[in-house]
Simulated scan of single mutants.
Amino acid sequence: MLVSALTLLGVPACHAPTSEAVDAVEENTMHTSPLLNEAEGLAGNWHLAGPEGDCALELSARNAPVAQGSLAAPMQALTITGDCLRDGSPQGWRPVPLGLELDNADGMAILTFEHIGEATYRSTDGAWTLTRR
């Protein structure tokens, strides 16, 4: 009844989007989504500075072990030289859409970093800075 009344008033009925319209939206969405960095592109030597001190990190592109029974996605190997991140020292890292994260042995994020410059990342809490050496 409502559709009939709207038709009499000259209001067009709703139609499902055409396949061309759906393709255009999907294509546009794919181009605006953040890209996931490749582990190989982030691997290397980094400097981490924050409230618990400074240290050197070596991000590796090889897989790091995740605790038995963990359902976390695979993470990459990490070596820390220096005295920082005393609480819950990370055991690995992984790329994420806006940057990278440092993970504990269970594969859960300890610190998440967003890309802010050429070779610089800042933790989402603003306390830590990670720069490529």
Rank of each mutant, 00 (worst) to 15 (best):
A109I: 00
L130W: 00
L100P: 00
S123C: 02
M75V: 14
E114T: 11
L8G: 11
T7M: 08
D54I: 06
A119H: 12
V3A: 15
A61V: 03
T7D: 15
S60L: 09
L85I: 07
A13C: 04
E101C: 02
L111T: 01
E27F: 09
A72D: 05
L59F: 01
N104V: 01
T129P: 01
A105N: 09
T124C: 05
L98R: 14
H115E: 11
L71H: 13
P90E: 01
G41A: 13
A16L: 12
D23M: 12
T18V: 08
S89L: 11
A43Q: 04
G50D: 06
V11I: 15
A127E: 11
L6D: 11
V22R: 15
D87I: 11
G117H: 06
T29G: 07
P90M: 01
L85K: 02
A109M: 03
H47G: 07
L100M: 13
P90V: 00
S60N: 05
F113C: 00
L57G: 00
P34R: 11
T124Y: 03
R133I: 12
T81P: 03
E118K: 13
T32S: 14
Q68T: 12
V96A: 04
T29K: 12
A72P: 02
N104T: 02
A13H: 04
L100Y: 01
D103E: 05
R86N: 11
L36A: 08
A39G: 06
L8C: 12
G82A: 09
A61C: 07
N104W: 01
H31K: 15
G50I: 02
M75C: 12
T131Y: 03
A13Y: 01
P65E: 13
T120Y: 02
R62C: 06
L9F: 06
W93V: 00
S70R: 03
D23S: 15
T32Y: 08
L2Y: 08
A39W: 02
M75K: 09
R94F: 01
D87Q: 13
R132E: 04
